[in-house]
Amino acid sequence: MTADKTPHSARKVLKRTLTWSLFCSLASLILLLIPFNSGTILDLVSNCLVATKMWISVILIQIFFICKSVTHSMPGKQQSKVGCLLKYVAVFLAIVTFFCVITILFGAPLTESRAETFHFAVLLSVAGTFPGLMTCGVNLDEWSRLYVLSSPEYGVEVVAYWTSLCSIFGAWLGAFPIPLDWDRPWQVWPISCVLGTLGGYIIGLILSSVHLFIKYYKMARQKHL
């Protein structure tokens, strides 16, 4: 991921990321809509835990493919693979704990449905921070540049930025239907939040596609000029 790529290859990378993110958003949308309310094992409403597990793996695979499509080496450059992996796992676990704590602080039940809370936290950290982990690694400066100062530069970073933001916001919004007295099965904690996260994630993918498309379009024009 060095900056001295030729504009041509940069455009190519951009294009590839764009296609991948579009493809992923479509795939997620279909995956979300088809089993919805069907009562099958992949239905979020009736089988929350299993479906959440499935979605965690789906998102992981998607992010892996998006990142793989662009980068050839992970940002942990010269370190040994095992050490690098351990570091990543440690950071990821920390993030999961962090999200667990945050959900409980925001009002998730402490004693009941612990498994659900944990699964939700894992999902949120996968959808909300895993893209960042893949692009920024364990470098704190990179993180702060991307998220706090919100200046995504490369294609993958755009995807990471938007999906993270939208996933977290979606999860936040997902909490609102819970107190309503509609007595729908999806109002049970944490199903609506999981739905919100997934919806946010998909919207994030779509937004990043739009963002990338604009970027691509501008770059193409620059080249012509």
């Binding site: 925001f106 009002g107 909490a175 107190p179 309503l180 007295d181």
Partner: peptide
């Protein structure tokens, strides 16, 4: 009405 009933949790949130 349900938001009024659960206002305690919502304001914490």
């Amino acid at each position: 009405n349900s938001f009024v009933v659960y206002d305690s949790s919502i304001s914490v949130f």
